[in-house]
């Protein structure tokens, strides 16, 4: 399966970046070492490719009818009730729960779908201005300062993860700016992750004791998510596209 080769890739990259970091630290000055522990990154230090953030969704623990991850995301990022003029087709959706049912077997599941934070995101490829980009630590974002609102990324995204804002917004959250005429999507709660907190959806899911979402560093083999991925099978949605997504699913 491509899953295993992807994971092997991750492990290899992990090793290489670690090795690079160690030599880098050694080169700075004798007696001065960069710490590579899991502690908080200082506010003035840039994110690096030594980490790759990801989420494992265990759909076996996803309760049908539960929408807590979605409401937590709305609350944190200020979407959901912010667009009174837009019709339902036009309203933004950063994360949604999807009910699926196998047509021949009847097997049914509920699962959340949001930006899959691909390693090679089609939205980033097609964006004419580079507003759509992948941060060094794997989080795919829209730089709304240079987004011109052409919506080509929405055409290219295989997951329908992106939304366009169809009207003027007011009272946005300071940590999640968003506005008319630009495209937006799940940011993996980058404002929280940068402060060593977990995304709002993951927090809400564990607060309810569902624990269907595990967030962590895919490159850190000791992280909970890496261990869980190594121990049991998981898949990417539309794995055929070979995008090596940061969001992985179990039980579908």
């Amino acid at each position: 399966m491509s899953e295993s080769s992807n994971l092997a890739d991750i492990a290899r990259r992990n090793f290489l970046t670690r090795a690079g970091a160690v030599t880098g630290a050694a080169a700075i000055a004798p007696g001065v070492f960069l710490s590579v522990t899991a502690s908080a990154r200082p506010a003035d230090e840039a994110v690096t490719a030594r980490k790759r953030w990801g989420i494992l969704v265990d759909t076996n623990k996803c309760a049908s009818g539960c929408n807590d991850c979605v409401t937590a995301c709305e609350e944190e990022n200020g979407w959901g009730h912010s667009e009174p003029e837009s019709n339902p087709e036009q309203k933004a959706h950063w994360i949604r729960t999807v009910d699926i049912r196998n047509k021949s077997t009847g097997f049914a599941k509920t699962l959340p779908i949001m930006c899959q934070h691909c390693e090679t995101p089609p939205c980033v490829d097609v964006c004419p201005t580079g507003a759509s980009f992948r941060r060094a630590d794997g989080i795919v974002l829209v730089d709304k300062h240079i987004c011109i609102g052409c919506r080509y990324c929405m055409m290219a995204c295989p997951y329908k993860a992106r939304s366009f804002v169809h009207e003027d917004l007011h009272d946005q959250k300071p940590w999640a700016p968003r506005g008319k005429g630009t495209v937006e999507s799940c940011t993996m709660c980058v404002q929280r992750v940068d402060k060593d907190r977990i995304p709002a959806c993951v927090e809400a899911c564990s607060a309810d004791n569902h624990n269907a979402l595990i967030f962590g560093d895919l490159y850190d083999e000791n992280s909970e998510i890496s261990k869980a991925l190594k121990a049991q099978d998981s898949v990417e949605i539309r794995g055929d596209l070979g995008l090596n997504t940061g969001i992985r699913y179990r039980g579908i």
Binding site: V124, V126, P128, T129, G130, I148, G181
Partner: peptide, 25 residues
């Protein structure tokens, strides 16, 4: 029809050369 037509200058100054849209510009 762009969401931000006022930012046309951005489309002319920031290029992502992997984008077929940018090539088209």
């Amino acid at each position: 029809d762009l969401g931000r037509p006022d930012r046309l200058i951005v489309a002319m100054t920031y290029y992502n050369f992997k984008s077929i849209f940018a090539w088209n510009i």
